[in-house]
């Protein structure tokens, strides 16, 4: 997994609450058996006027002009600014894969759905929770200032605005450690193999119907 340490990047505002993973990456793209290639189809139904199908050349498709990610000012954005309960619905990890593939490695929102939040960390994406007032402020600044960018530092758990204002965010220690170092947690868990075997041995006595 790609490590995440710090990032200075352009911000794209996704100004809707309850953005679900069906909207982030519609079901027809879930038929792929790969982890990459989802970026052009991120928010497909909002982004294009036609119905997207896997394998299409998105450069040739009619785009919805009013959709935020289609506006020239947000091209090459790396930070997605979002509203409450971002990533709700389906557990599809294709959602963070699409976000990452489209060039984003950080999402900021007042709240996230559980599974999506968790899936981000597994893919080197940092999901940041800031309070609603802070998120409101970032939206206002982002809309009013072309080229608006933020500086994110995971080590100090801070988000810095262009004026130098700083917001701090919470992130749990283990996830932070894995993200900073790009660690694969399967290897970490397998280092506990003896503990897992002990547990299984005990369980054969206490709950033999589960063995």
């Amino acid at each position: 997994m790609q490590a995440f340490t710090k990032l200075k990047g352009l911000v794209a505002p996704m100004d809707r609450a309850n953005v679900d993973t069906d909207a982030i990456i519609p079901k027809q793209f879930l038929k792929s058996i790969k982890r990459s290639g989802y970026g052009p189809f991120l928010f497909d139904e909002w982004r294009y006027e036609d119905r997207g199908e896997p394998g299409m050349d998105c450069a040739l498709r009619p785009k919805r002009r009013d959709f935020v990610l289609n506006q020239p000012r947000y091209q090459d954005a790396q930070i997605l600014l979002a509203r409450e309960n971002f990533g709700c619905g389906s557990s599809r990890e294709h959602a963070p894969w699409a976000i990452l593939d489209a060039g984003f490695s950080c999402v900021i929102a007042p709240s996230f759905a559980d599974i999506f939040y968790n899936n981000c960390f597994k893919n080197g994406i940092l999901p940041i929770v800031l309070d609603s007032a802070a998120v409101d402020q970032l939206f206002t600044e982002c809309f009013s200032q072309p080229g608006y960018s933020l500086e994110i530092e995971l080590e100090s758990q801070t988000v810095r605005t262009p004026t130098g204002q700083t917001f701090t965010f919470e992130v749990d220690a283990f996830r932070k450690h894995c993200l900073l170092n790009g660690l694969d947690d399967i290897a970490l868990t397998l280092a506990q193999a003896d503990a897992i075997r002990d547990f299984e041995r005990q369980r054969r006595n206490t709950a033999p119907w589960l063995a």
Binding site: S91, R92, E93, I115, N118, K122, D185, I186, L190, I196
Partner: peptide
Amino acid sequence: IGTSEVEHVLAT
């Protein structure tokens, strides 16, 4: 769970 965790559960 997500796909990374599917892999994690399969492996561990």
